[in-house]
Design a binder for these strands. Structure first.
Lengths: 142, 142
DNA sequence: TGCCGAAGTTCATGCCGTGAACTAACTTCG
DNA sequence: CGAAGTTAGTTCACGGCATGAACTTCGGCA
């Protein structure tokens, strides 16, 4: 009954297209999608593990292991700066910062390619709508 | 320099939001995202492995293993209908068909929730734009 | 016949996420 | 003070997933 076909369906395909391009850009920087997202979230300021887990929408144990792998590569480091000695914050190393910035720039540069065939109006629409949905549905940063 | 902040970035977040909701709906039907997508692609007509791999954007070997797991659950079955005995086509079982249709309906029903806060105009924009990008960037079905 | 290429598969490896059990550190309150 | 409960984070075993490399089978072509 939903007219044309599959709004939901189309959203899934859209996300697959984005996901694929993103993964490609990440591997060009020798990163996985998960590690790349992690890096981008902490690139400007350290965050606690719990906050990070919420931001990325993953369980604490999954995050812990992701951090293990990323730390092993020297891109990120655990710190324990608070009086409460249980809390661990995660920051980037200088190397990680460089990688993060290069990746971020590349994403900004190459990811919008998927929208290259759209009219300028539609590109603006998409940008606006993506921002709305992302900020509305993520416990997120801002 | 790109105004406001991060078009590329926003697209990534958008795709994460969609991906998460989709994964949730899939697990509600006891499926993984990959198996769900596979099922939806073959639910109406059988396809060759090579075509499937192209449609889903994955390597042939990855597909082969995905099919193994999905076939083991009795949702899908390999056939060898052509004179060329190398080609294998993949079709759904009756059980698989039922699951696929229930899932598809649920996706159509619940996935657009993420856009619920948008104005009706924006929802139409999003639907249209998603369709454009998806069909333009997928070797896909149509 | 003999050789090349295409369709699928198999294997080993590594990343990723989950559930369950665990440690260490703080908090509460008698 | 000190025992009970809570919170932050980790560890482990397991399964799904993707990749690269090697392999089998089959068709095409000379």
């Amino acid at each position: 009954m939903t007219e044309s076909q599959g709004f939901g369906d189309m959203l899934v395909w859209l996300s697959l297209v984005i996901q694929r391009r993103y993964a490609q850009i990440c591997t060009d920087h020798d990163l996985t999608s998960a590690q790349a997202s992690l890096l981008c979230v902490v690139k400007d300021r350290p965050l606690r593990m719990a906050e990070l887990a919420a931001n990325l929408g993953m369980a604490k144990n999954a995050l812990s292991q992701l951090v293990d792998r990323t730390e092993r590569r020297g891109l990120v480091q655990r710190e324990s700066p608070e009086p409460d000695r249980r809390v661990i914050t995660l920051g980037v190393t200088p190397a990680g910062k460089k990688v993060a910035e290069a990746l971020y720039a590349d994403v900004a540069d190459r990811l919008p390619d998927i929208a290259a065939d759209l009219s300028p109006d539609d590109q603006q629409h998409l940008r606006r709508i993506a921002t709305l949905i992302a900020t509305a549905n993520l416990p997120g940063p801002c």
